[in-house]
Design a binder for these strands. Structure first.
Lengths: 181, 181
DNA sequence: CTTAAACATGTAATTAATTACATGTTTTAA
DNA sequence: TTAAAACATGTAATTAATTACATGTTTAAG
């Protein structure tokens, strides 16, 4: 048990999020709908069992609280051991060259000729999709990082948003390159 | 069984590959080490069982051949039903906005201040990694698509390589933006 | 007031994917 | 000629991840 070999990166992300502030499983799940979601995904059904295992391993602890009359909440915090583990993860090299997946590009791949009538509508559909996402990300940057101060206060958040924006921008540019109208 | 709901995109990629030419499971696994590997990954241990299931479902068939004295090979080909399924997949919309993962970006995210001494070495390490990958992809494009003819003969292959190159180029540019030396 | 959305926590079932185990043949280079 | 690399096919064990099931509370809007 606890052997090396299986990566389980989610646990490190949870450690990182809890290092920012104590949070509930629900809060953590929410984080994956916002900026983190651009670079990692997880559902609450994956998070709750993992929190249990991490607590059993002594990396986090929780405190039971009650919101309102009787809504039970578990606020999780890092233990010193969990904090050590987080620091070790950030410091270790990341030589993986993230294996990424893209179903749309593969569909294009299986279209043999550049005159196939399906190509242009497909490109347009993807352009709409990525343009929408880009607009959404840019407007979020405008509201969240309106001041230089905000940028300094949450540098990691700024970086991750900037990277997501660049990624979408570049995807849009690539699609546009092959659009003929 | 065979319900909708679970995506299983690998089967479509296999259909697409077999549509290009009849191939063995080994050949298919190899394809994921080359251009396809930039956008999808699969090991032979995932491929062989899936080929079985797809054959049972009537989407592909195989022919036993022998290489040399006694090396058994199974050449798989599409059935008409499998071909229909491939065409339907390519034609259906791809509104998923591919959930992607990036461990390195997340590590940066958990570093709070822009003066943290770990940031610059981390950026340099990633730059080296992505620059190497970019060089590799560009040299492959140079050798495989030296003529316009080659480009027309395998347009899908060209597209997928071009997209991979752009992606790496942009990643390198983004990393460089935050490097201070 | 009432109802829908958001808050909050879990488990069950299933599928996707990786790593390891297992075996044998053919080709190529030293 | 011999050893390593590539060819070729599978299964087993485990982990990661998604979808669905299941229940209850609090808040905000109409």
């Amino acid at each position: 048990m606890a052997s090396i070999g299986q990566r389980n990166r989610l646990q490190y992300i949870i450690l990182g999020l809890l290092n920012q502030r104590p949070q509930t499983g629900y809060d953590l799940a929410k984080a994956f709908e916002n900026e983190i979601g651009e670079f990692w995904q997880a559902q609450h059904s994956q998070i709750y069992p993992l929190l249990r295992r991490m607590e059993a391993a002594g990396e986090i602890t929780h405190e039971d609280t009650v919101a309102g009359e009787k809504l039970a909440k578990k606020q999780y915090t890092l233990t010193p051991s969990g904090h050590d583990k987080l620091v070790a993860w950030v410091s270790e090299p990341s030589p993986e060259l993230t294996p990424s997946k893209d179903e749309f590009i593969l569909k294009l791949y299986f279209i043999k000729t550049d005159t196939d009538p399906r190509i242009q509508p497909m490109l347009r559909e993807q352009l709409r999709l990525h343009q929408t996402q880009l607009d959404h990300l840019e407007s979020r940057r405008k509201t969240v990082f309106s001041t230089d101060d905000a940028k300094e206060q949450a540098y990691g958040h700024y970086l991750i948003l900037d990277h997501a924006i660049e990624r979408e921008r570049d995807y849009v540019a690539w699609l546009t390159k092959y659009l003929t109208d």
